[in-house]
Design a protein around this nucleic acid. Sequence first.
DNA 1: ACAGTTACGCTACGGGTCGTATCGAAAGCG
DNA 2: CGCTTTCGATACGACCCGTAGCGTAACTGT
Lengths: 211, 211
Amino acid sequence: MQSRSSAAHATGRPRSAAADAAILEATRAALVELGWSKLTLGDVATRAGVAKTTLYRRWAGKNELVVDAVAELFDELELPDSGSLAADIEGVVLQFAAILDRPEAKSGLMAVVAEATRDGALRARIRASIVDRQKRLVLEGRAHAQARGELPAEDDPGTASRAVDLIFDVVAGAVLHRTLVSAEPVTEDWACGLAQILLQGLPESAPPPPG
Amino acid sequence: MQSRSSAAHATGRPRSAAADAAILEATRAALVELGWSKLTLGDVATRAGVAKTTLYRRWAGKNELVVDAVAELFDELELPDSGSLAADIEGVVLQFAAILDRPEAKSGLMAVVAEATRDGALRARIRASIVDRQKRLVLEGRAHAQARGELPAEDDPGTASRAVDLIFDVVAGAVLHRTLVSAEPVTEDWACGLAQILLQGLPESAPPPPG
DNA sequence: ACAGTTACGCTACGGGTCGTATCGAAAGCG
DNA sequence: CGCTTTCGATACGACCCGTAGCGTAACTGT
């Protein structure tokens, strides 16, 4: 999870892996109860049953700790190879929205993103731990759709890469904005409407059946 | 800007309007230099040339203050009635991105959104001061496009309202995600690609000319 | 078994910010 | 000139920060 990859130091007392897990779990619990602003590292340490010094030995501060605590939440995302691009998009959108609905994800993620605007190292950490990690969903969905013939194959790798980035920004950004800024729920209807825009564009989007 | 609308108290010493402006300006300056987390109300008061108590008399805390300070930034947005829906979208996207590029908007906006996940009153304040205020752009652009025949007219007001909300989430969310999460610049090419998706959908989006 | 090395828990500390209270002076109104 | 409200200044206890010091625990190589 951090710099210690496999066996950097073969000597001395090893770091407790259980402590890592307990700290991250305690961080999420504190995010739920207190939110970002009232979360203190001393409190997290108490909840996790570790000393405050132990916590500071592993993470540089609140920002880095919360990034790692939140990143774990997004690893459960997976593409539901459902047979059509529209259904794939809808499925991922609903999964993503379900995670963002959890208070520890909401308050934690946005707060570290806000801090990352003034901290390049934190920005890199977020990208590596969360963003780029989940871009695989777009890649897989795109590949499936191309195999089905729903999307044209792309040969130029540069263009393809920019397209994937754009799609990721649109999909993730829409869900994020809906959940956090507009503060309204992501329903199946909404996800369906989003998929419709992505597949057909605005003009052809005839209104969905009332419901 | 706050509860005092026109003439609530005709008696006593009136509140200095200049102090309000100075405080909001000082808040933005502090956001640029220090960012959200290191911004302190005492510092803002000093910069504005007012006492800390004056500041607390008008705003409940950091959150409310920054919302008001940031909201003013977004009022300069306007729809560039450029003759086509694609160009209108591109224009608004580029304007929005230009504002989000300013550090006081970046760090301030995301931070208050993060805090708003645990504070309903703050959420309402953000909606009223920022979000709903700018939704006018979607309404205007949609009306223009319908007058041009680029978009079908919508009769059911409920469906139309949901469509406007969805479009707003997609456009604003995409720019927000691109700027703050992906942390990459919104270029003209990118805005063009976004408009293309919105108008034509993913499948027909042939790659734009290289450059 | 023993020395060497690293992690751990605990406690304590100076420094900073918070939000509030208090007070006298200033600014408007009748 | 009285009344009301705001303003500036200062002081205050409470809290959290991040670090330092120390003795103990865990693991490794010879």
